[in-house]
Amino acid sequence: MTATPPDEPVIELAGLRKEFVVRVRAGRFRRTRRLVTAVDGIDLTIRRGEMIGYIGPNGAGKSTTLKMLTGVLMPSAGEVRVCGLAPVAQRTRLALRIGVVFGQRSQLWWDLPLRDSFDLLRHVYRVPAAAHAARLRRCRELLDLDDFLDIPVRQLSLGQRMRGELTAALLHGPEVLFLDEPTIGLDVVSKQAVRAFLAELGRAGDTTLVLTTHDLADIERLCRRLVVIDHGRVVHDGSIEALHARYGSRRLVVADLEEPTSVPPTLAGAPLLRTEADGRRLVFACESATASEVVARLAGLVALRDIAIVEPDIEDVVTRLYREAVADDPRVGAEPD
């Protein structure tokens, strides 16, 4: 198996488009055919070792894109290459070079112990025994698998099964790992274990990760690059910091005062957003001023009981991004004719 050269893209999309024909009711006994565009001309390049957050609202085209990248669906138009291969035409070869984890689907054998599923996958992918053992050892250490390796998959908790799914997807050494809602339904402890494992995998730089999720905490903790799509089109491609800057999200400084004030101080570069607790709490937004500058100025003007710096909420930022997309393009959010 030949790896993609470091200077070449691992994933390339050019004008990628997917349309479906659906039948809709047009009266009591009649149905008509309607063309629905799920993915509408996506251009995207992803290089080796990148960790990409690929997000959007329900129906935006996220899962459809992943299915075209993994060879499950044939594009209606455009070009797609993954590891230099055409996903549909070369699906068997591609399967040896990618891993896929879908939160609601399993690649493990339901009635077999987890250990046996891993051994069967070694034979399915024809992985040398030494390489398989080394990768399994690493996953056992990072995901704490030893306590349930000999338990049938059907008896595992959701968190244990997801850790097993991640291991199963990585045992053949894929170049790209596609993750669709990997933490959905997990408890806090299991989420932390999965996130820590993926972060470690990303730091190694050998595997490209494409993460689709509704849990924006996953994106904030794992991904340096964020691609946001809405109604099949890319509306943002860049860092999370760039997203915050573009949509005006700001750090907040929340100051609790020793005594209430009826005339709050005015700070250059940090407008007062609101006064709370009968004048004992002031909330400032950091615009041109940094949080440390705001705190230093406040300390010289009022007696402070406590101070807190609140980071911008990415979920709020993405919501505003969607609203702007609707305002800029009347087709977004409109019902098809």
Rank of each mutant, 00 (worst) to 15 (best):
L170N: 04
V22S: 07
R115F: 06
R17Q: 15
R195S: 03
Q90T: 01
E19N: 12
V101A: 09
V39Y: 03
D206E: 15
G71C: 11
L209I: 13
F102T: 12
S239I: 14
V253S: 01
P87G: 07
Q160R: 09
T261F: 09
D256W: 15
E293V: 13
A204M: 00
R105G: 10
R140Y: 08
R224P: 01
R297S: 14
Q192A: 15
R137L: 14
R251W: 14
T70N: 05
V36T: 10
L166G: 11
L179T: 09
P6N: 06
A199I: 02
L149E: 04
L179I: 11
S63V: 08
L149F: 09
H132I: 01
L252T: 02
R33Q: 13
E79D: 14
A217H: 14
C286G: 05
T212P: 03
L179M: 13
Q104Y: 03
M162G: 02
V302T: 15
R280F: 08
S190V: 10
P5N: 12
D111Y: 09
G279K: 09
I98H: 03
P312V: 04
V295F: 01
A196V: 00
L304E: 04
V263Y: 06
P260C: 03
D111I: 05
L120F: 15
L209R: 06
F148W: 00
E175V: 12
T213K: 04
E165C: 03
A38K: 02
R246I: 00
L198H: 09
G238L: 07
I151G: 00
V194Q: 03
K18D: 04
D150C: 00
L69I: 08
P57I: 08
R23P: 07
G27M: 10
V254I: 11
P330N: 08
F284V: 10
T32F: 01
N58P: 05
G248N: 03
A291Q: 14
R251T: 12
A334R: 13
L149A: 06
A255L: 08
H231C: 13
R97T: 02
A199V: 08
S239T: 15
I184G: 02
A308L: 06
E259A: 12
I55N: 03
R274I: 01
T207S: 11
E315R: 09
R33G: 12
Y322S: 08
R161M: 14
E175M: 11
A217N: 14
I46M: 13
L112C: 09
A129G: 06
R251E: 13
L13Q: 03
D147W: 04
P9A: 00
L35D: 02
V153C: 06
L44F: 10
D111P: 01
S288D: 10
P182M: 08
T92F: 13
R105C: 10
A169I: 11
D230I: 00
A325R: 15
C139G: 07
A134M: 00
Q104S: 07
T70A: 08
G49E: 03
P128L: 01
Y247C: 09
R224F: 01
R225S: 07
Q107D: 14
S106Q: 04
L96S: 15
V295N: 02
I55P: 03
R320N: 11
E220V: 11
V283E: 07
L267W: 03
G71H: 07
P174N: 08
V21M: 12
E19M: 07
A130P: 06
D313P: 09
R246N: 02
R31F: 13
L35G: 00
P260Y: 09
R28H: 13
A291D: 14
K191F: 05
P182V: 06
I151P: 00
